[in-house]
Design a protein around this nucleic acid. Structure first.
Lengths: 216, 216
DNA sequence: CAATTACGGTACCAATAGTAACCGAATTTG
DNA sequence: CAAATTCGGTTACTATTGGTACCGTAATTG
């Protein structure tokens, strides 16, 4: 889409863009986002960090947001290969979620995404995040489909991805292997290893006068 | 904390601040945030919308972010009363989550929160969102505590709040009563009403050669 | 060589957060 | 009532930043 070269035709005459400069700008953007947040990522600073000029930015992207989006996209395309299907749903989910958490937690990419994750006003950023989200959904569907857990599949996916997003981006806390284990167990409706058998109706069981529930 | 009046002492001499102006500014901030996003909420525009001046803003708050945080706090303190405890966990959760979704979905408060939900760099904003989050957690703990669902309570809470947050703020989709129903059933480990009995190990069941799982 | 385009640098413009100065009016204290 | 004080609204100012324009130089095509 964004790429100028459609394979065919001759090279445009004139000095070609230096790939080194492009890469340095993408890198500077990702690292600055991760280390200092979106606010600190001014065009001048990104250019300086990449040891180039503002003009080099605007020759490649129409605006700052597009550069930021491109840096996220590049980093997303660099992350580790997909989790292999092993045939067991619980195992597949554990593996996929572990990989996902590993890619988003305590990595420049993860911090960068966190720093822009609510700037949905910027279509460029919204699009990148949407693409990544769609890919994760698709992956999880492939794990669930044609298994006995297909019922409420979309809700199960929302619960799992929501957990990761919530803990990492809202609560600013790490997602531990135990968290993943517990979530997978609950979402698959397996009897939790350490919890007693569930009791659908624990009686009106019984609320001693407790303080009113705060809201929201 | 922020309030100047600590009950005691005499009133400061001189003309008092007009409550009407303060309210108009808080209102203008919330509505502008909701309707046009954080980017569009310039101090000049907020002041104009409140039919007052920039100076009126800076007499009340040290900076723009503090005004925005105050407007969110005020709106959060205005929302409907807590969901009453009814003694049945599933019922309590449904009710609490319905109220939460109603307060955050298709309301100015909800849209305003969405527009600032990733500006964690601003301590003022992070604090308000954190307070709201803590209150919700506390409420859900009061529903779970002393029931047979206490095991993995924190993960169950993360799953439920994560689902709401994820659908509303990440996927930009509404949370329907059916969504809540399905989530509560899954998180409580109840047999889903429309799904067949869960099968903990659906065999290696069986992955026909499918495309590799995309990631992340 | 001539044409073209990138490179890095500087200068510039428009918008915005925040500050300062002003003056009339309101309110409290004495 | 008089003095002191603070508010209310207006205008002007500074500093920062996104984005544009122009410069002389370097690299590439023909």
């Amino acid at each position: 889409m964004t790429g100028p070269s459609l394979s065919s035709q001759s090279a445009p005459s004139g000095r070609p863009q230096a790939e080194r400069v492009t890469a340095a700008l993408l890198d500077a953007a990702l690292l600055t986002l991760a280390e200092e947040g979106f606010e600190a990522a001014t065009v001048a600073r990104l250019a300086a960090r990449a040891r180039t000029s503002k003009q080099a930015v605007y020759r490649r992207w129409p605006d700052k947001t597009s550069l930021v989006a491109a840096s996220l996209r590049a980093a997303l395309n660099r992350v580790s290969p997909p989790a292999p299907r092993r045939g067991n749903v619980a195992q597949d989910l554990r593996l996929y979620l572990s990989n996902l958490v590993e890619a988003l937690q305590d990595t420049p990419l993860g911090r960068a995404i966190k720093s822009v994750s609510a700037l949905k006003n910027q279509p460029q950023l919204a699009a990148v995040l949407q693409e990544a989200e769609d890919a994760r959904r698709l992956a999880l569907r492939q794990i669930f489909i044609a298994t006995s857990f297909e019922a409420d599949m979309e809700t199960r996916i929302d619960l799992l991805l929501g957990l990761v997003y919530f803990k990492l981006h809202v609560r600013d806390q790490p997602v531990s292997p135990d968290d993943i284990e517990a979530a997978v167990h609950l979402v698959l409706g397996l009897t939790a290893p350490k919890s007693p058998a569930v009791n659908p109706h624990p009686g009106t069981g019984n609320t001693p006068d407790r303080a009113p529930v705060p809201f929201p």
